[in-house]
């Protein structure tokens, strides 16, 4: 039995005849952040709902902090925090009351809950709004309070389902900062997102999910490398030297001439390379020794968007063509 972190093996979930999850596997080492990256309808929320005991799986198994999600749900619930895709807050309570309620039900004593609520309001910049009813909060404030609520009991494993979707840039940066802070105190985090940038920024490892399956897994760097590595981009001082430069670079990086992109008019050469910034030094050294001067050079890495397009064959917003039409359920219990 796995001892910590999160382990997911072959999760399958059907809604009627529609198979939303078709064998999802991934693992999260203790104290690390895994980003579940995928488009709308990929199965992110369904996966999170199963891991947080909200939804039973049809087959497959999962362990959270070593506890079996299906057989030990009560233990799982006592070590996790969840910020769902839609905020779950009580509109008729104040921010502070919301937090204290969750804390007390999460087994904090009265005064500990109050103390922790005060601290979290502070962290999330909500101290001033803390004694106002939630229904007066803006979307960003509500989202921050929602995240604060899932941190009341300092979970061992935290699940964040699209935590920044629909947030303004300032609130997004603020959440990123808090999530970074949680990682640094050793919280294991499973985070879903549709934003490549967010996965890149926050996650140690990324699992790309599409159509109910994990289609790629690795660090952001590994995924980028899989898509075709890096390209060194050079501009020469002397435009007439491009063919000489091309010869030298092809030899230095052991690539065929056909793989280089040479532009005589602009005096530029592009070379595909396996390594990262070391390639820049190597390129300059190869040219400098033969008296070819470089005016400008740079390394272009494929973006995660490139990765995504390459892996899924579609951009990150088209739903699965076979997916049932569904009004977004606000709760895992809706839409049955």
């Amino acid at each position: 039995m796995p001892q910590s972190g999160v382990v997911v093996e072959g999760l399958v979930k059907r809604f009627g005849s529609f198979e939303a999850l078709r064998g999802v596997d991934f693992a999260v080492a203790e104290g690390t952040v895994v980003g579940l990256l995928g488009p709308n309808g990929a199965g992110k929320t369904t996966t999170i709902n199963i891991l947080t005991t909200l939804l039973p799986a049809d087959s497959g198994r999962a362990w959270v902090a070593g506890y079996d999600v299906e057989r030990q749900p009560q233990l799982v619930r006592s070590v996790i925090g969840l910020t769902g895709q839609y905020s779950a807050v009580d509109e008729d309570l104040t921010g502070r009351e919301n937090l204290v309620l969750v804390g007390r039900l999460g087994r904090l004593g009265k005064s500990a809950a109050r103390e922790r609520a005060g601290e979290l309001l502070d962290v999330f910049d909500l101290t001033e709004a803390g004694d106002r009813l939630l229904r007066t909060y803006s979307g960003g404030m509500r989202r921050r309070l929602d995240l604060a609520a899932s941190l009341m009991v300092a979970p061992q494993v935290l699940f964040l389902d699209e935590p920044t979707t629909g947030l303004d840039p300032r609130s997004r940066l603020q959440l990123w900062e808090v999530i970074g802070g949680l990682r640094s105190v050793g919280t294991t985090i499973v985070l879903t997102t549709q934003y490549m940038e967010e996965a890149d920024q926050l996650a140690d490892r990324i699992s790309v999910i599409d159509g109910g399956r994990i289609i790629a897994e690795g660090t952001a760097d590994e995924l980028k490398t899989r898509v075709g590595g890096n390209v060194v981009h050079l501009t020469l001082c002397d435009r007439t030297a491009t063919s000489k430069a091309a010869d030298l670079l092809a030899r230095a990086f052991a690539v065929a001439h056909g793989e280089l992109v040479v532009d005589d008019d602009l005096g530029t050469v592009q070379v595909p390379v396996a390594e990262g910034s070391a390639a820049l030094v190597e390129a300059v050294r190869a040219l400098d020794g033969e008296g070819v001067e470089v005016a400008d050079l740079g390394l272009r890495r494929p973006s995660l968007d490139d990765v995504f397009l390459c892996l899924t064959g579609h951009i990150a917003d088209e739903p699965r063509p076979d997916a049932p039409m569904l009004r977004r359920p606000r709760s895992s219990m809706r839409g049955r």
Binding site: R77, G84, A88, L105, A149, R330, S332, M333
Partner: peptide, 15 residues
């Protein structure tokens, strides 16, 4: 409570 997500919040707590 179902619509606001509070029930899901309670359902992931160890109560």
């Amino acid at each position: 409570d179902l619509q606001s997500g509070m029930i899901d919040r309670f359902r992931v707590l160890p109560i």
